[in-house]
Every structure is written in C-alpha cells, then in structure tokens.
Design a binder for these strands. Structure first.
Lengths: 200, 200
DNA sequence: GTCTATAAGAGGATAGAC
DNA sequence: GTCTATCCTCTTATAGAC
C-alpha cells in the first residue's frame, strides 16, 4: 500500500516534469526508491502506471477550475481563475500530454486529457454565461467560443513562457486577455452590475 | 549534397511529428533511406542534425508571420494571419519543442525557439500598433501584452484541438479572439477607418 | 561520401526465489 | 509484496574498409 502510493506520486511528478515518453521505469524506481519487483507487481506495464498517474494529475487540477462555477460575482471569478498563481515554467500537467507522441497516439492515454479539458470548458462556459447575465459582458459574444479562447490563452501562455524561460509572456498573455474582456463590457468602459439584460 | 538535404528534410518532418527526444537516428535513416555512414558523416550527432532541422522548421514558419508586417489594412492583416489555414492536429513545428524535455533543458536547442517567438511577437506588436493608429482598436490596449495574448491563443488552440483530436476548439479559440478584438474597437460596434486618433 | 561491423548502455520488461 | 537475476531490443554512436 506504501509502495503503490509512492510509485503513483513519483510517476505523477515525472510525467509533469518530463512527460510520458521520456520517463523511464528506471527513473521512477530510482526516484521513488521502490524496487523492480514491487513496481511490476503493482503496475504490470509502464503504461498502466502512467494512466493512473495521469488521472491523479488531472484530479489535482480540476478543483481549481471549479472556482469558475462558484457563486460570487462572475467577472471576479473569471479574473481570479485567470490570475491564479501557476507554476508557469513547468507548464500544464495535463496540456503537456498532448505534445507527447506516445500519448497522442494512444487513445486510452489521450481520453482522460480530452475529458479534463471538456470539463474545464463547461466551467468556463458557465462563468461566461453568468457574466453576460450579470451585464458584465456583452450579450453578443459566444460563451462557448470565448471559453475556448481563454483556455487557449492559458495553455499557449505556458508555451511562450517556456520558450523564453521567463514567466513574463504568460503574465502578459493573461493580462491582455483580461483587458479584452473588460473592453467587451456592455457599456463601453465600466460594467453596471445587477442588471439582468436578456435580449439578443 | 543529396544525402545532407534528404537528412535535413526528413529530420524536420520527424521533429514536427514526434519532437526531438522521441525521434531516433534510426527512424531518420529508415525514412530518408540514407545510410549510417553518410548520416554520421554529415551530422556527427543527433543533436547537430536536430539543430539544423529546427532552424529549417523555423525558416518555414516565419514568412507567414511577416504577413502581419504588411502594409494593407491592419485589422485585415490581423484577421488574415489569425485565420490562415493551419495543420491544426499536427500542432506547431516550433511551439512543440517547448514541451520536449530534452529541448527545454538544452539552451542551444531552445535558443532558436525563443528567437522565433520573439520575432513573431515583434510582427504582432507592429500590426496592433498600426490598428490602433488606424482607429481600429482602442488606444488604451497595450499592444505588447495583446501580442502575447494572441500568440497564446494560437499555441493553446493547438493543445486543445489535439486533446480532442478535432480542429474545432482551435477554430473556436481564434474566432473568439477575433470577436474580442472587434469588441475592442473604439466606437463601440464598428470601427471607422482612416481616422488617425492619437490621444490618450 | 558511403558501407558494414561492432558495441556500451538504456528501455521495458519477465522469471522465480523469499 | 519484494528482491535479484536475466533477457531482448533499441539508442546512439564509433571504427575502419571502399
């Protein structure tokens, strides 16, 4: 019970740091201190271990996104989620997987990633709809679309930051996104709250 | 002269498809048909070959970005660049490299990636400044920031699309970004062109 | 420039004893 | 459940002949 947990914990870290393809069973053994026999007892293949570790990494991340579902002021929720502190230069535990050829090509490994993003998308859409209902966002923007845009800003921000080895581009990207959201407030500059406009 | 070119061409393809770490010299040999001896004659190490192939992939991509520098209507240039057809499910030849642990950890391999993004950023900033000068974009948005935001939308769009194995999220993300840009036009709905407002 | 041979080490397990 | 031994393939070259 101890070894299993240690292996999972270690594999989750390594998948975040190095992805799947570039993480060897040996690396997991060495970092975790768990022996060969135990390892293959608990997880018959590297892929089994990776799948379990991936699920854990996703479970780590999803609670943050449910911040978007909250009940406070919608734009405040959106801003809080966007501006949440992140380990920028490490990148996204989940998004990273999409660039690993061995994950991309394995439907079983890719599926949890797809599900995770789909779930976060739902949360974004809810927050954006709430913002429109609260009169904080023009009612002619498409929440589904915009949700993808904002998720992309986060995922792409990591890419830019890692390229420069500097969190700056990530911070600029999300700040710019917020600027645009504010520019898309209904009354040109500052949004009047508590007005529930509901017309096309 | 023939082999060298074939190797470069093949390595460039493989780096796009599978990244650096997961592309073996053997794979390059087999796909290119070039023999072992020739390969190590032209490129002493895998890294040397990768560096050359990466420079080529970057050179492939930069011309497109210079579309942003053009001299036509700024918003039209921006829209054209954003909406340019892309091989969405393959991802970005350059951005992909940031997720490869062996590239990330190698300053020599990462440097060209950083330079490429920096260059694209310059083009974006120019286009956005032009749009502001042309009265197509509010003069209170920060072009540097917004440039990062829009680059992130592209890079992140790839991530979302690959996760779902569907270009849809990419297309939604960029369309949503355009919506926001339009919402950030100075006169609330449609931008009056050829007015060179220059005040804070 | 290109070919074939060789090789140390890592990757990803399997086997069987304790 | 854990340990040690063993195995076969792939990776990334190197060596030397043609």
């Amino acid at each position: 019970m101890e070894s299993r947990e240690l292996l999972l914990e270690t594999m989750s870290e390594l998948m975040w740091e190095r992805g799947y393809a570039d993480t060897s069973p040996r690396a997991v053994r060495e970092r975790s201190g768990v022996g060969q026999g135990s390892m293959y007892h608990h997880f018959p293949t590297k892929r089994d271990l990776a799948l379990a570790a991936l699920e854990r990494n996703i479970a780590d991340l999803l609670p943050a996104a449910s911040e978007l579902d909250g009940s406070g002021d919608p734009m405040a929720r959106i801003e809080a989620y966007l501006m949440r502190p992140r380990d920028v230069l490490k990148g996204c535990k989940v998004g990273r997987m999409t660039q690993d050829p061995q994950v991309r090509e394995d439907p079983v490994l890719l599926a949890p990633v797809a599900r995770a993003f789909a779930q976060v998308h739902v949360s974004w859409v809810k927050a954006l709809r709430d913002a429109i209902a609260a009169g904080e966002l023009r009612d002619d923007v498409d929440p589904e679309r915009l949700a993808h845009t904002l998720m992309a800003v986060i995922q792409g921000g990591y890419v830019l930051a890692i390229a420069q080895q500097d969190p700056g581009p990530f911070d600029a990207a999300r700040a710019g996104a917020l600027d645009l959201l504010r520019a898309a407030a209904p009354l040109a500059s500052s949004a009047p709250k508590n007005k529930s406009k509901k017309r096309k």
